[in-house]
Amino acid sequence: MCLAVPAEVIAIDGKHAVVDLNGNRTEVGIKLVPDVEVGEYLLIHAGYAINKIDAQEAKERIELLEEFYAGLEEIS
């Protein structure tokens, strides 16, 4: 279950933050993910942030795959 979508933090007001999802804005609870900062990406489920998205990790994983498959192509 559990649809969750990535969103960027635009503003923070105590227990809530305004987030942007590609041109859609909504207020979400940040009780479960304190110390968020403007510009960070959060994963949103049912109106609450459930975690930060580790942009570095997301990038590294993809780069690893890209390198791996590029390498395979060269071999073949």
Partner: peptide, 13 residues
């Protein structure tokens, strides 16, 4: 389909 419609659709399932 615009990115914005895509994102809103994802959010609402």
């Amino acid at each position: 389909i615009s990115e914005t419609v895509e994102a809103a659709s994802q959010m609402l399932g």
